[in-house]
Design a protein around this nucleic acid. Sequence first.
DNA 1: AGGAGTTTGTAAGGGTTACTCCAAAACGCC
DNA 2: GGCGTTTTGGAGTAACCCTTACAAACTCCT
Lengths: 213, 213
Amino acid sequence: MQADEAVTAAPRLTRKGQATRDRIAAAAAALMFERGVAGTSIEDVQAAAGVSPSQVYHYFKDKKSLVKAVIAFQTTQVVQAFGAVEPRYSRLDSMEALRAWRDFAVNLERSLNYAGGCPIGSLGSELAESDAEARREVAAGFALWERSVVEGLRAMRERGELRSDADPRRLGLALLTMLQGGLLLTQIRRDTAALEAGMDAMLDHIESHLIPA
Amino acid sequence: MQADEAVTAAPRLTRKGQATRDRIAAAAAALMFERGVAGTSIEDVQAAAGVSPSQVYHYFKDKKSLVKAVIAFQTTQVVQAFGAVEPRYSRLDSMEALRAWRDFAVNLERSLNYAGGCPIGSLGSELAESDAEARREVAAGFALWERSVVEGLRAMRERGELRSDADPRRLGLALLTMLQGGLLLTQIRRDTAALEAGMDAMLDHIESHLIPA
DNA sequence: AGGAGTTTGTAAGGGTTACTCCAAAACGCC
DNA sequence: GGCGTTTTGGAGTAACCCTTACAAACTCCT
């Protein structure tokens, strides 16, 4: 009664195998972030990961399932670096933390030369209409992310800092939505003006729901 | 001294020629909205427009320039239907108009079965890293759209309805950014919750800058 | 009505890309 | 140390898709 048998008769991976599998996924993620899914061929991934053609197909059934792995990879990356539960610098449960979060996003985009947009948002946009399963996985990634953002706001409300008429669920979702729009427009406009204006407006809006100390 | 000579030694189009050219562009726009640029082959466009292969290349140099035409097509569509200067229903210069605008977007997405996202936003996301010229054209389209939204807010301020510390430029840009994020998440999640929460938050924020009558 | 220029159909070339096959090498466990 | 399994290499195939060449049909102006 192995649990993974039902999924895909998983061949067990040796340590080395796991390493190359990860290397392929990471290389694919980086390339697809830069050039999009359609813009990166399997051959590109091979070259970037330093593997031979057969290896890609040994570890992934086809390109679609490689994309699936990339989505999972980017989701964990984003939620770890940009989520609120265990973010790199602090929990998103104060205005200071939220402002720092905004600055982090803006500076990150700058350091990336305004390219790529959101690692999972752009994947979702490209795949939503062509790969239903991929769309669902991206949506699940967003749900995870959303939950982690909402959690911070909920903590603020439970500590009595946020007014009771402020709904953490809706505010958190709106905040994430604004971030997505900002990242998309950053990618298109090659500047962070929209990201900054959007996040500032949204954060001011949240701040207006604070209970004055 | 023909003006268009400098552009691309434009062969003059007969009425019929113009019609098929438009038909090709419209068919391409529809397909690329549904399946993305990479997901629609020239052959698909031929079939949808009811033309032969040579016709596409008679009216468009290559696929890239067809995409360029699609961007122009969608930009005018969006700005006409969703701009604020001459929108379908009213100018975006009152809270009522803004709320109606929000509802229009939500209902439109519903009627489209939550598919496609923003006609130019998704084009921008897909092309930003692979086609610099296309990215610039999409950015120009957004600039047009942005100006038309800002115009409405500016009118509100000039009529003395909006406080003087409310910057129409930043608010308008934030509003458009939120709309983009909402449309993107609608496409990925297949529901309008994010669009609704985001637009409502942003509109509440704007409303909080109104001068009470 | 005639003729130059525009529009359209057919057929096919050339390049890219996802994917497969088979055998050799490396690995891990007894 | 040896054997079953995993991992790797490289050549090869079939499909897809962008693009072009050429000739026939049609439009429009005078």
